[in-house]
Design a protein around this nucleic acid. Structure first.
Lengths: 103, 103
DNA sequence: TTCACATATTAAAGCATTCGCATATCTTGA
DNA sequence: TCAAGATATGCGAATGCTTTAATATGTGAA
C-alpha cells in the first residue's frame, strides 16, 4: 500500500551502490579485502595496480560507505564496511561461474 | 591455487551484468517482473515510462540474457531469465532498506 | 629540517551511457 | 489493402565514467 515513489528512492540508492560495485577493478579490490583489512600498498602491489589509481578507487568506495579505513602511522588500512556488497559479488560470481566451470 | 587471471575474466563478466542492473529504471522493471511475465505495454504503463524508452531497456537486458521474451500475437511478454539478478536486488535493497526504515 | 616512504588530490582526454524524440516495423481485424 | 494498436530502432546532445599523469600532502626517522 505504499506509494511506488517510496520504492523509487530505494532503487535510486540501490542503483548507486551497484554502479560503484559494477567495475572489474573494484570487484577485485573487494574480493581482496574479503580476507581482512589491508593497506593501500598491499592492495596496489597485490593486485598490480597503480598507486594513485588504487587510492582513487578506495576513496570512491569509501565515499559510498562500501569501505571504511583506519590510519596506523603512515599507513592506511581499508576494510569492507558494507558486507552486503560481498553477498552481491557471490551472487553474480555464482552466476557466471556456474555456466563456465567450477573453481 | 588458480592464477588470478582466471578470476579477472569472471570479474569482468560479473561487472558487465552488474552494470546493466545498476540503474533505477532497470531495477524497477526487474522488480516489476518478479511477479511473472508482462507485456511491454503493461510494463511501460504500470511504471509510467515512455514506450520507446521501456523497449530499449528491455532489449538491453535481453541482450545480456537477464531477460527473455515470448511473442503472443501482437504482444511481447518479457520475463526474468537470470534469477541471480533478483538475488542481487534483494541484497542491495535489504542494504539500503535496513538503514532507513521498514516497509 | 630534510629525506624517504605512504597516501591523496587534481586535471584532462577519451569513451560510454542516458534519455528524449521521431519514426519504422510488425500484427491483427475489417 | 488499410487502419490501428503494439513494439522496435536510429539518432544525437548532454552527461557521466574511466584512466593516466603529474603532483600534493602526510608521517616517521635521523
Amino acid at each position: 500500500m505504499a506509494t511506488p515513489d517510496v520504492r523509487l528512492e530505494h532503487l535510486q540508492k540501490a542503483a548507486e551502490v551497484l554502479r560503484v560495485v559494477a567495475h572489474p577493478v573494484r570487484l577485485q579490490i573487494l574480493q581482496f579485502l574479503e580476507g581482512g583489512e589491508k593497506t593501500v600498498t598491499e592492495i596496489h602491489t597485490g593486485l598490480d595496480l597503480p598507486q594513485a589509481y588504487t587510492s582513487q578507487q578506495l576513496n570512491l568506495m569509501k565515499s559510498k560507505d562500501i569501505l571504511a579505513s583506519r590510519r596506523d602511522g603512515s599507513q592506511v588500512f581499508y576494510r569492507i564496511a558494507n558486507w552486503n556488497v560481498l553477498k552481491i559479488i557471490h551472487c553474480v560470481c555464482a552466476d557466471s561461474a556456474g555456466e563456465t566451470a567450477q573453481t
